[in-house]
Amino acid sequence: MILSIAEALRKAIYDEMERDDKVFHIGEDIGIEGGFGGAFTVTLGLEKSFRDRIIDTPISEIGIFGAACGAAVMGMRPIVDVQYGDFLFCAMDQVANQIAKLRYMSGGKIKVPVVMRAPVGVTGRGSQHAQNMEPYFLSCPGIKIIAPSTAYDAYGLLKAAVRDDDPVLIFEHKLLYGAKGARKEEGAIDASSEIPDEDYTIPIGKAIVRKEGKDATIISHLLMVHHSLQAAKTLEKEGISCEVIDLRSLWPLDIGLISESVKKTGRLFIVEESPKQGGIGAEVSAQIAETIPDHLISPIVRIAAPNTPAPFSPVMEKFYIPQPERISKEVRKIIEEY
């Protein structure tokens, strides 16, 4: 059946809760009767099937993440909904000091299998409800990070995350959910997929080639995969062949797949929706420059948001987010120069 990302995530949560009674979901506004199933409809109606395990909480992010941490240590498999990724910062001690480090501090004697669901994306809400904070967690050893750009991946990655014995942070993009009705997002992109009627997972740490090409490698995740594919389509018509890689996992990075592609194309572009400073592009380009510099025939290019918070004005917001036109322009420029 064809499902949107919101529906695919809902099905994954349902299937995992059905499979394992240790799985529960905790967060704000996720199971209120007559409510909206979390800010982006992902958990809509799940409380009807699992009233005890869809747990609505006060607005208390420290409490929610701590509760998930403690429950995980005692053998449960909690999924946390943080409503907006921006609110992760309210819970930062629990995420970065407790969830990420407890296993290590215990000498590997305990497990903390928490799944944290964080919606991101620069989407008409200004600086505090519309940012991409993925890079903060790239410098947080102990947490795995995934970011699905299609419904097929969303289903398989979330299931893999629930079954993983380590903490997993899943970033979901507001413009890719495909939420319907009153919760529909302005400017949404169709990321729905055919979801086979089978129990499949997608391994964490594996990227995927979305489009093959020989002249340039474009790396991205979430919404930027869709923008990169659009740019590649434009460039293809001009005779420039781009390979587009969807990272799917931000940590661990599938540096093997990226390297193979760069060895083939000799040109690397990293596209991301978060500020350039200390971004994913910084990490990927450093790793490539450290390991296979001789394969590069042109400088690595980072195509990112400016080093500012996300602005509100639609005009500024459009400038802030790397658009397909900007991506194709940057690639074209490098191909012409080198």
Binding site: I64, G66, A67, G70, A71, M74, P78, D93, Q98
Partner: peptide, 21 residues
């Protein structure tokens, strides 16, 4: 947990697990 106040929410979670199980 050596962060002041850091263990309280975790204890809520441990006891929540006992209740759920």
């Amino acid at each position: 947990i050596a962060i002041v106040g850091g263990n309280l929410p975790i204890v809520v979670g441990m006891s929540l697990a006992f209740k759920l199980m």
